[in-house]
């Protein structure tokens, strides 16, 4: 499987580390909403198809990446820096 890092270009999957489900929304650290924390820690969509994921190019530029990967075909339809996506969220739009 090849992942096209926005900085380094296409690289073997062995250079990357999976950092988890990209759909989770972390509750406010001060939150005492147990349902929200439970959902953050345990609830996963587990789709058969496109899936939002966070990866790190740990064996390359070390950037954190937001990716959409198809769990049936391994096709990767988008890769972007998490830093850029986070900046978009701040300015209003959802990633």
């Amino acid at each position: 499987m090849l992942i096209t890092c926005p900085y380094c270009g296409p690289r073997d999957v062995i250079e990357f580390t999976y950092q988890g489900d990209g759909n989770r929304e972390r509750p406010n650290p001060a939150s005492q909403d147990l349902e929200a924390w439970n959902a953050y820690v345990y609830d996963r969509l587990n789709p058969a198809g496109d899936h939002n994921e966070i990866w790190q190019h740990s064996g390359g530029c070390r950037a954190h990446l937001r990716m959409v990967r198809n769990t049936l075909t391994h096709e990767i339809s988008s890769v972007a820096f998490v830093r850029g996506a986070a900046a978009n969220t701040k300015s209003g739009g959802k990633p």
Binding site: I14, E15, G59, G60
Partner: peptide
């Protein structure tokens, strides 16, 4: 320049 690894040797 390129950043890469050989058997985890960055």
């Amino acid at each position: 320049g390129r950043s890469t690894t050989h058997h985890d040797v960055f």
